[in-house]
Structure formats: C-alpha cells, structure tokens
Design a protein around this nucleic acid. Structure first.
Lengths: 141, 141
DNA sequence: TATCATCATAGTACCTTAGTAAGAAGGAGG
DNA sequence: CCTCCTTCTTACTAAGGTACTATGATGATA
C-alpha cells in the first residue's frame, strides 16, 4: 500500500557526479603535486573514462584542478589538498546545496511557511559540515 | 561548457512529498487535538487534494496520524506535536536519509573508499538536525 | 606529422517525480 | 436502506533528470 512511492528513494542524495568527482579529487590528492591522466584515474577508481572527462571539465572550470593537453598532458590539483574543502567540490558538481526549493506563494519572503525553518537550518548544517572537511582529511598517511 | 550538466540541480533536495507532508503536519499541529479533512488542509496549504490523499496514507501507515472514514471523517495527529520529530515525517515520505548509496566494489565493507567518510559524517549530521526539531517547534504561539 | 591527451556536443535508455483519473470502501444521517 | 461525504487504492501519464555512450575537434609533444 503506497509503498511504491517510497520504496526506492533518491532524494536527499548526492549524484554519482559528486561521488566520482570526489573520488577523482582524492586520487589526485594522493599524488599531489604530481599530475595524472584521466585514464589512470578512471581505471583506478573504476569510473567510465568518458564520463569522468566531463566531470573533470567542470572541476577545471571551477579552478580546483589544472589541465595540460597533448602528450604528457594530465590533471593536477590547483591548490594544496589542505586548502580544498569537500563542499567546494560537491557544489561544483551537484550545484548549490539547498535542501528545498521553497518557492511559490507560501514560501516567498513575505509569507514564510513554517517548514521553511527546517530547510534553512538544515542547509546551514550541511554546508558547515562539508566546508569543514578538506580533501587532505580524506587521504591516509 | 558543460553547464547543462549542472544548471538545474535536483540533488541533495527533499521532494515535494516531504514539503507537502510537513506542511500538512504543521497544519494539523496547529489545531491539535482537533481533526481536519484532507480537503481543508489541501486548500489551506495550496496542495493538490488527490496527491495529498496519497501522502496522508503514508503518514497514516507510519502512525503519525490517525484517520476516520465517512461523514465527519478526517485526520488527527496521533501524538502531541512535541513528541513528533521532523525527521520522522521526512523519512516516512522520502525514505531513509542517506546522502550516498555507496555500494559496489569500492564501497563495500571490506574496502571503504575515502569519500565514504564524507557521506557517513554528513548523514549523521542531517539526522541529528532533523530529529532534534519537533513539530511543535514549527508552529507559532 | 603521427600520437596521445584533453575538450566539447549530441544523443540515448532508464528512472523518478509529481501529479491526474477513476473508482472502491466505509461511516453518518435521513 | 439509501445517499452523501469522507477516506482509501490502483493505474496511468508527462516532464525532466541521471548516467552514461558515441563521435569527433583541439592542441601539445616527439
């Protein structure tokens, strides 16, 4: 009864973009400041190379990695892993973190619905958690 | 450049199920312990009545509301709003809160990927926040 | 100029969301 | 008993997003 509506939930999850991107970034962090090709990262992290190419493009636009083309090309982190917050990577790939749209006539700035309190409080908590963690916190050694 | 992949983000959001359900629950909390019909709630909160019927069914199965059929029928909260955590309502409607699937060979229990630290830490934070808020915290007076 | 890497667009199958449509089930009042 | 009025349930649908694949352009190095 009604279970089909809830059985497989995909809400309040990050996409594989965030997952793959974070894996690629931690992989690069482990060899920082050396560079690596997408092919190497993809096979080590078991990610589709073609898909990862697109994700790395986003991260490059976001200036957390730098690329060089051609033979001997590849990717490097553009900063020390200690200075790259996990939240920055995730927001680049998954967009702004906001747990509810909260638009429309019952959630405008004039008339706040009671539940908007929940979404605002939660949004702050999530960002605090994700920006408090740095890439360097995710690698061993 | 790649922007179409990120422009409109729907990840890390709750669905309208959670939004509507929470609105309906706060609406019921405001008249607790009196009852109300779905029709009243739907028009006051500007939600499709037919859709809300389904959502209320889920909440009834989750035993946060009680219903009575027939003429003079309607819905009541099954507990005092002080005793109903916001997280319970949201998990009933949106399913278990877990920010990443983390399955597959790189995220099994034997071989934890570095980024699983992020998802676990975040999941704990989100639950703590949502279960710390009660329905009674969302209503004025 | 051949090779090897990044960079970019287009297209696809599958799935979820957010509903609508149609009606069955059941209690209250006449 | 009958008819309202409510809840309850299943089935269906359009729109849109995810997670890719396919195909190739661009550009640096040897």
């Amino acid at each position: 009864m009604y279970t089909n509506l809830v059985d497989i939930n995909k809400n309040m999850r990050f996409s594989t973009k965030a997952e793959y991107g974070l894996k690629a970034m931690t992989n690069l962090a482990q060899c920082y400041p050396a560079q690596k090709t997408i092919g190497e990262i993809a096979s080590q992290e078991n990610i589709s190379q073609k898909y990862l190419e697109r994700l790395m493009g986003i991260l490059r636009n976001g200036e957390v990695v730098q690329s060089s083309k051609g033979k001997q090309g590849g990717y490097v982190l553009s900063k020390d892993p200690k200075k790259i917050p996990v939240g920055e990577i995730i927001e680049l790939l998954d967009g702004d973190i906001a747990p509810m749209r909260c638009v429309g006539k019952f959630c405008s700035s004039e008339h706040k619905c009671p539940s908007s309190v929940v979404w605002n409080k939660l949004g702050v908590q999530i960002k605090k958690t994700l920006y408090g963690m740095k890439l360097s916190d995710l690698i061993k050694n």
